[in-house]
Simulated scan of single mutants.
Amino acid sequence: MLRLYKARKPRPEFGLHSSNRERRGKLEQQAIEVTGLRKTYAGGKKQEPKEALKGLDLSIPEGSIFGLLGPNGAGKSTLINILAGLVKKTDGRVVIWGFDQDVNPRQSRAAIGVMPQELNMDPFFTPRAALEMQAGLYGVPKSERWTDEILELVGLSDKAEAYARNLSGGMKRRLLLAKALVHRPQILVLDEPTAGVDIELRAMLWRNVRKLNEQGMTIILTTHYLEEAEEMCDEIAIINNGELIVRDTTPNLLKRMDRKALVVEPRNEVSQEIRLPEGVTLETRPGGQMAFSYSRTDTSAEDILDALRAADVEIRDIASEQPGLEEVFVSLTSNR
Rank of each mutant, 00 (worst) to 15 (best):
K142T: 05
N104Q: 14
M217K: 00
P185N: 00
R109V: 07
A162G: 14
C233S: 00
G170V: 07
H183G: 14
Q186P: 03
Q117L: 13
L137M: 11
Y138S: 09
V182F: 01
G169P: 06
E152Q: 15
V182T: 07
L153H: 10
M171D: 08
P116H: 06
E132M: 11
N240G: 07
A110D: 15
E227Q: 00
L181E: 10
R165E: 08
L212K: 12
Q215F: 03
L181M: 08
S168L: 08
L167V: 04
L167H: 02
I199S: 05
A164E: 13
W146S: 15
I238P: 04
D234E: 04
E192K: 02
A135I: 01
S108M: 14
K179T: 11
T147F: 03
Y138K: 07
E231M: 07
N208L: 04
T223F: 01
R106I: 14
E230K: 00
R207H: 11
D234Y: 12
G136C: 05
A135N: 08
P105M: 09
M217V: 12
G139T: 04
N104S: 13
R173K: 08
P116C: 05
P123S: 03
T223K: 00
S157W: 08
E144V: 14
Y225V: 13
P123T: 02
A180V: 02
L167D: 00
N166A: 11
M171V: 08
G196I: 07
L137K: 11
M133K: 14
L156E: 00
A130M: 10
V154L: 13
R210M: 02
P193A: 00
A160N: 01
K159M: 15
D234F: 12
Q107D: 04
L205D: 02
N213S: 05
D191K: 00
R165W: 10
L212R: 12
A135P: 04
P105S: 10
L221P: 06
A111W: 01
D158H: 06
N104T: 14
E231N: 07
G196C: 09
M171E: 04
D158E: 15
F124M: 09
I199N: 06
L181V: 10
L201I: 12
V189N: 07
R128Q: 15
G113S: 08
N104R: 05
G139R: 02
M115T: 01
L181F: 06
G216W: 13
L190W: 10
A130L: 04
E228G: 05
V197H: 03
I187N: 05
M133H: 15
E144N: 15
F124V: 14
Q107L: 12
L181S: 06
A180K: 00
A180Y: 02
L177I: 06
L156G: 05
A110T: 12
N240H: 12
P105V: 12
R202T: 10
